[in-house]
Simulated scan of single mutants.
Amino acid sequence: MNAKLGGFKPFGSWILEGTQLTFKALGTDEHHGLFALLADDEVMYVGTCEVSFRHRMDGLRNPPASQQTHYRLAPCIRSALSSSQRVETAILVMPEATRQELKERRDALIRQLSPAWNLRA
């Protein structure tokens, strides 16, 4: 996993079954914190999660257009997988963090790493 993601741990990987995205989680689910999408160990996206990480990943599999971020990220994941890249999710569990603390930590990582799939910091 990318060394720049100190404290993050592997959570699962993405596969493409035909045109359908599938997420294979490692171990048990966690709640509340940050997640990163990595393509061949390069950080492509950093986001917040205030629910179950598994629930957040499920939202990326077949997102409705109303879920703008999920709707935008799903084709990015699909394209990376179609290009034979390995796509994984890593998480940083922060159960006591407030919404503001999560956003501040996420934004700091985005400024530091400049992930290609993030639109802003």
Rank of each mutant, 00 (worst) to 15 (best):
N2G: 10
A3Y: 15
K4C: 07
G6Q: 12
G6R: 15
F8T: 11
K9R: 09
P10Y: 09
S13C: 13
W14I: 04
L16C: 11
L16R: 13
Q20M: 11
L26Y: 06
L26M: 13
G27V: 05
T28Y: 03
D29R: 00
D29M: 01
F35Y: 12
A36K: 09
L37W: 05
L38F: 07
A39P: 12
D41G: 12
E42P: 06
V43F: 07
V43Y: 03
M44N: 14
M44V: 14
Y45A: 09
G47Q: 08
T48N: 14
V51H: 13
H55Y: 14
M57C: 14
D58P: 14
G59W: 10
L60S: 11
P64A: 11
P64V: 10
A65P: 07
A65N: 13
A65I: 07
S66R: 10
R72F: 03
I77M: 00
S79L: 04
A80V: 02
L81D: 01
S83N: 13
S84V: 01
E88Y: 02
E88W: 02
E88C: 02
A90N: 08
I91D: 03
V93Y: 04
M94C: 08
P95N: 06
E96I: 05
R99A: 03
R106M: 11
D107Q: 04
A108E: 08
A108Q: 15
L109F: 05
R111Y: 05
R111D: 09
Q112K: 13
S114V: 05
N118V: 00
